[in-house]
Design a protein around this nucleic acid. Sequence first.
DNA 1: GTTTATGCAAAACATTTGCATAGTC
DNA 2: GACTATGCAAATGTTTTGCATAAAC
Lengths: 147, 147
Amino acid sequence: MSKRDSPMVAHLLDALEEKGYRDTAPRRAIVQAIAQTEKHFTAEDLRAQLPEVGRATIYRSLKLLLDAGVVCRVLLEDGNLHYQLSHRGHHHHLLCVECGVSEDLTGCDIEDQLKNVAAAHQFQVSGHWLEIYGRCLNCALPAAASL
Amino acid sequence: MSKRDSPMVAHLLDALEEKGYRDTAPRRAIVQAIAQTEKHFTAEDLRAQLPEVGRATIYRSLKLLLDAGVVCRVLLEDGNLHYQLSHRGHHHHLLCVECGVSEDLTGCDIEDQLKNVAAAHQFQVSGHWLEIYGRCLNCALPAAASL
DNA sequence: GTTTATGCAAAACATTTGCATAGTC
DNA sequence: GACTATGCAAATGTTTTGCATAAAC
């Protein structure tokens, strides 16, 4: 059970508890850091933010959060994989290439379309991974103004 | 100019030449290894196949081939990035999760659809990355038969 | 002959693991 | 008290870099 934390922090801790993982100080620190950002991040970003937490604990905790489904990986345009807060289940991401803000896109209805395309290649589709890159409102406006 | 090589090998060497890169023995070896597989591969796969070529040369050559647009990166379902032969320009991949065969999918027409979805989030789309996972004909048949 | 590429070894990262200690339940 | 988590350091794996030598043009 989580104490008086922000709703998001409580949600993340609950997800860990549900999986039988213990409520510890380092995990709280990690979860708080994650809850505070709307951007994607790397293990090393977290490490820089939380120098008091050991490297191994950061990597191990990220795996637990992934496993619990409350954090997911996102693929950046340059091929780097980062982490971010996530809805459970299948979804996609809108990633701002300027500021790094990322947003979950639930409700994915391209699967049918993919199945049709793949059928032409005699492929039986079992899944897909889609990332969408662009500019968020804040970043798109200044760019348009300076044209 | 490339000698009597397979058409694909010649195509790859030509792509390098077009960019002003020299025709060397290690590059030929790398290009031949790549031309011979329809699967995705890693730098270390190539290294195992070509022990006579130095590690650095493999990594450097892969970058050149990427830059020349004849090789691209694919994202595996587990988050690993591999390389594969590629059409130039924007395209997607059908990846067989059983045998690793991968096929290019040219003609991508989901951009409009993505723009609509993203507009609802006030995002201005500039690009996307889509990978499709499933089973190729050879792998789908045995699986269906054993049900 | 000038320029570019190679190979090696070392460096730079990123991630994982073993193990003794400390914290949680 | 039993079990799990942590921190550290070391091991592992991957990719990059410096530099002297060799090959291409």
